[in-house]
Design a protein around this nucleic acid. Sequence first.
DNA 1: CATGAATGAGTCTTCATTCAT
DNA 2: TATGAATGAAGACTCATTCAT
Lengths: 206, 206, 206, 206
Amino acid sequence: MNTIERKNIEKENRRQDILDAAVTVMKSHGLHGLSIDLIAHETNLAKGTIYLYFKNKEEILSILTIRARTLLIKDFQKIEKNKESNIEQLKSILKSNYLFYKKNSLYYDLVSLYEVNNRMTETEEMQQSGEKIMKIVVGIAGRAREEGTLNPKISPVILAMSLWGMAVGMLQLIKVRGAIMKEKLNISEKDLLNSFIQLLENGVKK
Amino acid sequence: MNTIERKNIEKENRRQDILDAAVTVMKSHGLHGLSIDLIAHETNLAKGTIYLYFKNKEEILSILTIRARTLLIKDFQKIEKNKESNIEQLKSILKSNYLFYKKNSLYYDLVSLYEVNNRMTETEEMQQSGEKIMKIVVGIAGRAREEGTLNPKISPVILAMSLWGMAVGMLQLIKVRGAIMKEKLNISEKDLLNSFIQLLENGVKK
Amino acid sequence: MNTIERKNIEKENRRQDILDAAVTVMKSHGLHGLSIDLIAHETNLAKGTIYLYFKNKEEILSILTIRARTLLIKDFQKIEKNKESNIEQLKSILKSNYLFYKKNSLYYDLVSLYEVNNRMTETEEMQQSGEKIMKIVVGIAGRAREEGTLNPKISPVILAMSLWGMAVGMLQLIKVRGAIMKEKLNISEKDLLNSFIQLLENGVKK
Amino acid sequence: MNTIERKNIEKENRRQDILDAAVTVMKSHGLHGLSIDLIAHETNLAKGTIYLYFKNKEEILSILTIRARTLLIKDFQKIEKNKESNIEQLKSILKSNYLFYKKNSLYYDLVSLYEVNNRMTETEEMQQSGEKIMKIVVGIAGRAREEGTLNPKISPVILAMSLWGMAVGMLQLIKVRGAIMKEKLNISEKDLLNSFIQLLENGVKK
DNA sequence: CATGAATGAGTCTTCATTCAT
DNA sequence: TATGAATGAAGACTCATTCAT
């Protein structure tokens, strides 16, 4: 029984190794440049071996997306446990989202992959991870409303959705135009982010 | 000289035909399904001929993006000529952006393509088209500030950038999650859009 | 010695289990869908274990063919023990052959496999099983000749061979074209089989 | 217009070259060993080029089958134009079938491919070629009946079907067991064929 | 200018077989 | 004996790009 457990752990480790390799490949070849061949090369495994651990190339992509979302969820959950006021928590979430992106920009590539390509349907698990993120934000917004700091006209669900959409949009903007903005307009990412948060705070408050 | 000019015009016409065909193909096969083969077939030209007018498949994509942006710019310029107050103009721009997406969702696929794939660097011309959009928004924001309706703490440039990022993000959200939000949460696109605009109006006002 | 015998018996049992599993797999996945992986899964054995009992995938196939032939031989032997006249026995063999195919069409896939693919040479054992079938038919034909019901010009061996070839051909025809014949020409399998037997009876008689 | 015609002819020639190469490959590697790679190598073309001329590997196989059947049909049509009696024509068809197989045994591999593999559905064109063969035989059988040489109890259609099935079966027998029969039983192919024909003649006559 | 045949690297995936444990 | 992870050759198919005509 003990050996079975060990086997399972090793198997899981190997899965993670392959996923890590996939991330490495994506970092150097781009999301689109990911191929089973390259993953095999990166892991020093044979091509066929990859298929012992994953049914599909798509399964790898989908798990990677879930992984990214899970990491983000953890960041968000930490914020929820803060003793900050709910409105501050909302702001922290926006900041945390930004910091997460800076640490792991690949994540946004993965998110975009599923957003751009209609043909790639999300698995049940992926949808759940997406909904979990939203629930956290909805929860905080709801409590902020009860707290009295939030404009009561705005539904918490719609607010959460809007925040999420805007935040993702802002990060994409930073990613694509960040360098140019800095160079040509002398606008730092920080400035942009702070203004964005400030703007939302104003818009959201009672 | 005259014949040279004519030749140039004809060449430009041919380029536009090819671009039109590319759009047609993308409409039925999706961004990903675009291939030189299909463009050639759609134009009744030979595959090699396409390469007489465009260096690359990428060039076609890049020009198509510029074209999309140009269409959007025209929409925005109409708004600028309105007699609305500047703050109303800003709101109109957000709405117009949404309507443009509804009419031509292909555009957002193209935008995303360049955002997702780091390896596709924007050409000078593409950057200019991007900047032109921004200039319009910056202009309106600046006048709104002078008008006194805008919070003077917010720099017009940063505001314009933020609006743009948020608007794109909102549209992607609608595109990807729109159906699910409607179905599971009973949130319509209209609700979301209006809340978004309302939120920004509050945030932006003095 | 006793333990060695027991070991041998166990080994043989295990071989039979694997062969049974192979048949099960083929029934649900078709001749072409047979894979070592599926056999291993069906037997709850590891893939490598299969190779302890069989040198090859081909060995499995070849033994399965022998097994099928052996089953057919048993059917034929029952007929031989009948009290029918020899000419009736010949007819019974043709019918029995058809019934065997209806019950176990897998058999004909296996036969065909060896007929189509030149590279799969029959083992000594396979040839023997083939010859055994032929001997039975030759025997009946010989006795029919002595009986006086058979045209004496025809050699029993050649007759047996011809019957065998024709019978197999008829079954393949039924298998491949049976449905179409029924549908387009309204010819039932029964009609075809009876005509075939009648035709041979006429041709064979004195 | 002339050049278009020439192009078409060249294209058709190239198609035939590829088909010829496929036959060559099959002769040396067997029906199952046919691969696009080998065809490409045999033709000195690139792999992708094969796909300019054929949609599929299956298309190649299917056309090859039609080709084989067409050749056989031509042989049969020659027989129909003979001045032999209809019963002799039937016998000639059986002989011709045998000779065709001896010249081009690949044909029977192709026929068998579609007979063995249920998953490979015949195209419309393939079915037509199959039916054409049958029509010729049915025609001769029908005329033989009118002629009075054929047993009137046997329907021409069923007879034709039976003949076809039996003939194919006999050839497979010769193919698979021919060498062994010669060696062990001293039965020549000729003996077998003649007996087969004789047997059918007896069985078929009035 | 225009053609379109040809290319060939690249993609995912399968599966019989081996071998260290 | 038994395992099952690992292999890697082989397979079908795609498509941006080139180039001789």
